[in-house]
Amino acid sequence: MKKAATIRDVAAQAGVSVSVVSRVLNDTGPVAPAKRAQVLEAIEALNYRPRRAAQQLSHGQSDTIGLLLADLTNPFFARLADRVVAEARSRELQILLMTTQEDPHLEAQALETLLDRSVGGMIGTPTGHNIERWEKLASLDIPVVFVDRSISQFQHMDVVSIENIESAATATRHLLARGHRRIGIISGPLDTTTGLDRVRGYEQALQEYGLARDDRLVCPAPFRGDRGATAMAQMLSLADPPTGVIVANTAQVRVTLRMLSQARVSIPDDLSVVVFDDNPWTELIQPPLTAVRQPIDMLALHSVELIHARMRQKLPPTPRHVRVAAEFEERASTSRVDPDDG
């Protein structure tokens, strides 16, 4: 593992004394502007982290994992956080949890904070931005495991996700086999791997049935807000609306269902619905929802196992891509239609 820079390294790089570096870091005394600038440049060039360096010198390694998740108001991420904490605790590891709220600016701040807190590894759900900050972790030899989503530029990172393409294809085939030919999808943003892969799976299933994609039925939506409801309303207002819809954006399931209820759309008589969700209420409401059940427990297990092994340097450097199969639960929210009508 690359040795962390020390305060003496910073002093040597900047051409000043250790006491000058200390005064800059702790703001405990006057420093000439030119020398301050030299020290700050050296800190940046060496990726010097005072807390991290001190901990590594005294303990050799950190047993704290940074967990950077997208949005804890989303039940998927709330449960994922709970399971990651449980898996970490069983291995005597500590978790430092932060959220991005799907905001790249907050993600950048959180990454800097976690670096300052001397984490030994990172499990994260990236927004798709802040490429240089994620790269900075790699340059410091801090292992990273992306969970649920990844960043396409980072083929060298470990990734744990569900089989998004196959899961969306299975959901689409389910509706196609029941005669539906006008099928809409509300996905995540197409600049995220989950959003893009689920649309790819949807398109794959359509092609198997000789059907072309209708762009009006493909509606990417952010992971926060109520854009899913707006997308659903737009699809229903078409002259040839869908007879079935897949809500492949977990964060948009509730707002979409609320919109359908307010519009008095009967499920499945007027519209068959498949959701990506695994909350207990999906089988308790009327009608119970046909769902792609995401294996959150397995995502947490594999993520913690991977990061723990990386932190202990027990794996070869080749990146691991773990994809876990999701379960398809057929319930009462989908029905058959005449293909000539669908």
Rank of each mutant, 00 (worst) to 15 (best):
C219M: 12
V10R: 01
R133I: 06
I43W: 10
S266E: 15
V324A: 00
S19E: 11
N130T: 02
L306D: 00
F276M: 10
R336N: 10
Q38W: 10
I185R: 00
N26S: 13
E132F: 05
V145C: 05
S333H: 02
A325F: 11
A108D: 10
Q94E: 14
A171L: 09
V147Y: 01
L67S: 02
F154E: 03
G210F: 07
P339R: 03
T64S: 15
Q204A: 12
G228K: 05
T256E: 06
V84D: 10
E305C: 07
R200D: 15
F154N: 07
T194S: 14
V218A: 11
L93K: 08
Q234G: 01
L206C: 12
T99W: 02
K2R: 14
E283V: 09
M122G: 04
H156G: 04
G179S: 03
R198M: 09
C219G: 01
D197V: 03
Q109Y: 08
L211T: 07
Q252D: 06
A248I: 10
A53M: 05
Y202Q: 00
T243I: 07
H321T: 13
M157Q: 11
Q56E: 15
Q38D: 15
V273W: 06
H321D: 10
A12Q: 15
F328M: 14
P317N: 10
A42S: 02
E132P: 02
L96R: 03
G228F: 08
Q294N: 06
V39R: 05
R254L: 15
R264V: 09
D27N: 15
L69M: 07
Q155R: 14
P143D: 08
A53F: 02
L289E: 04
E92I: 00
M122F: 03
R117S: 13
R216I: 01
A42G: 08
M235L: 12
R198F: 08
I185H: 02
V85K: 06
G210M: 04
G225Y: 04
V160C: 07
E166G: 00
E166S: 14
P30Q: 12
L97S: 03
E305M: 12
G121Y: 11
E208I: 04
I165Q: 14
V39G: 01
V304G: 03
V16H: 04
S58E: 13
R320C: 08
A138Y: 11
V273C: 11
V199W: 05
E329C: 11
